[in-house]
Design a protein around this nucleic acid. Structure first.
Ligand SMILES: [Mn+2]
Ligand SMILES: [Mn+2]
Ligand SMILES: [Zn+2]
Ligand SMILES: [Zn+2]
Lengths: 150, 150
DNA sequence: GCAGTAAATAGTAATTATTACTAAATTGAG
DNA sequence: CTCAATTTAGTAATAATTACTATTTACTGC
């Protein structure tokens, strides 16, 4: 993907085209490593030494909102005593977690061989819980907003 | 599950039986809410007002190591530009993330109806990457240890 | 039951990922 | 080019988690 193609993509998504955004996205599409914000800034700083970590987080948030990237792992650790095979429904708005018991999901396996020595797996379904489907409650303005319904 | 049964369970797992541990585990098995450490301490403080948050984290770590609980979401946020349907192999030792492309995993659905308005899902396989299968590298002594191989 | 020992606890400090705030710079529209 | 809105960098604040340490507690033989 060329820089010109990245710029075109940003314009299609109604995102302003800035050197910081191009550098971040360009770095991200040229790695398989699922980088953290810190890893991103350390690469991008080679081209843009003045870039701030704040801008990286802001930009990643913009990208995710625009549907250009997805984030993996992004909230408080939660704990579960139920070790029976089961999976979770996670509300992307309020972070509520509900259990899913579904035998079909407990029989998954990889068709390809891999280097990993696999111990187990989880399926996480993302969506909006009943509460957060009501208008007005579905957008978390403050990322640190407490969850009000468990 | 009675307190006596909890004590028996701890002894089977070679864990010392303490009031703090009993209170924490007892609270956890009597909720469906996948509590955070903060939620746990706020409940447990009613019975044990002097308990510290440090003890809660320490105890949760002990429980997880002993295989009594599992934690959900527990590292730095990572970002992925690849929005094609795919899933991940996550190394529980070094947190490396590898992609899994497997069509069979992209056709999952819930058999039961639920209140959630589901937007998507991910399958996360947990295990040890090739690097961390070597003896001596498989245990993260320091939780904040940097990942050395991406 | 008691002494000795290793582990657990509470309290506090430190760390660090992420978010908030703000003034200055930049972008895209007209 | 002009102008308004957005973005950026810098810095401060926040908050989840971990580190450190002195004291207390729980288990193991005796
Ligand atoms: Mn669960
Ligand atoms: Mn991926
Ligand atoms: Zn919700
Ligand atoms: Zn690994």
């Amino acid at each position: 993907m060329t820089i010109a193609a990245i710029q075109k993509l940003f314009r299609e998504k109604r995102l302003k085209v800035t050197p910081q955004r191009c550098a971040i996205y360009n770095m991200m599409i040229h790695t398989q490593s699922h980088p953290t914000a810190e890893e991103i800034i350390s690469h991008v700083k080679q081209a843009l030494p003045m870039i701030s970590l704040n801008t990286v987080y802001y930009t990643l948030n913009v990208f995710e909102t625009a549907g250009l990237i997805m984030s993996i792992n992004n909230t408080h650790t939660r704990y579960d005593t139920n070790l029976e095979p089961h999976h979770h429904l996670i509300c992307v708005s309020c972070r509520k977690i509900e259990d899913v018991f579904d035998d079909a999901l407990n029989q998954l396996h990889l068709s390809q061989k891999s280097d990993f020595e696999i111990r187990g797996y989880r399926v996480e379904f993302y969506g909006h819980c009943l509460n957060c489907q009501k208008p007005g409650t579905s957008i978390r303005r403050n990322k640190r907003l407490a969850i009000t319904h468990l």
